[in-house]
Amino acid sequence: MAEIQREPVPRVDTGELDVALAFLEFQRHCVLKKAEGLSDEQLRRPMVASGTSILWLIRHLAGCEREWFGRQFAGGEPAEESEPADPPAAEVIAEYRAAIVASDRIIRDAGDPEALTAILIDGVRKTLRWVLAHMTTETARHAGHADIIREQIDGATGR
């Protein structure tokens, strides 16, 4: 099957923070692209035994953005647990986009890969570099899951 959602990886090579952020942005984009053109039902449809859906992945990643950049790195308050159990798909996607904007602002405001987390992780403060690598890995892992789920739904492939 021909890849119909394929895009090149970033070519940015202007500095450590620029490169790290470009690759994280690329992975985020890949996740969001998997949701494009799908109905609410398709976004919610679990395609694996664990019950994972594209919408679940997006909601999970929004929480990861808030946790790792907003709380662990910047020292913000933990996210409230009062979110509705079954919000509209458009709301979940909008929340992910808003979490990305907030994370990017935190990253750019820090401006230094050596900046340290506000919260101790395993008893030490980690660098922004570490948080970026962690979130890029987490997002890429789930982008792969979304890619497989999307292919199962309608045959669309590619990164």
Rank of each mutant, 00 (worst) to 15 (best):
S53K: 05
D104N: 13
V124R: 03
V124T: 11
P8S: 14
I149D: 01
Q42L: 13
P113D: 00
A94R: 11
R129I: 01
I119Y: 09
A79D: 13
E67S: 10
H142D: 04
D86G: 11
D147L: 12
Q42F: 09
A99F: 09
D109N: 13
L116R: 03
P88M: 14
Q5I: 10
L32D: 08
G158M: 12
R125P: 04
D112A: 01
G15D: 05
A115C: 02
A94W: 07
Q42W: 08
E16N: 10
E114A: 15
V124S: 04
L17S: 03
R66M: 02
L38K: 06
G15K: 11
A102S: 10
G51V: 04
E16R: 11
Q5W: 12
I119T: 14
L24E: 08
H29Y: 06
V19N: 00
L120N: 10
S39L: 10
P113H: 01
D109W: 05
A133E: 12
I121F: 01
F23A: 03
W56R: 04
R59I: 00
R6M: 14
P84R: 09
T117P: 08
A94F: 08
A79H: 05
A79M: 13
R59G: 10
E77K: 12
S39E: 08
T139A: 05
T157P: 11
I58T: 09
M135G: 07
E67K: 13
A118H: 09
R108V: 06
T136M: 05
A99L: 09
K33S: 13
E67N: 12
A22M: 05
V31K: 02
L55P: 13
R97G: 04
E7P: 05
Q5A: 15
G51R: 03
D154Q: 12
A133P: 01
I58A: 09
L17F: 04
F23N: 14
R71I: 00
H134R: 05
K126N: 14
A35I: 05
F23Y: 15
H134V: 02
W56T: 00
Q5L: 15
G158F: 08
A146G: 11
R66P: 04
E138M: 03
W130I: 07
R97N: 05
R59P: 02
V131Y: 04
A146W: 09
M135Y: 07
A94S: 13
D13K: 13
A143H: 02
H142W: 12
I107L: 08
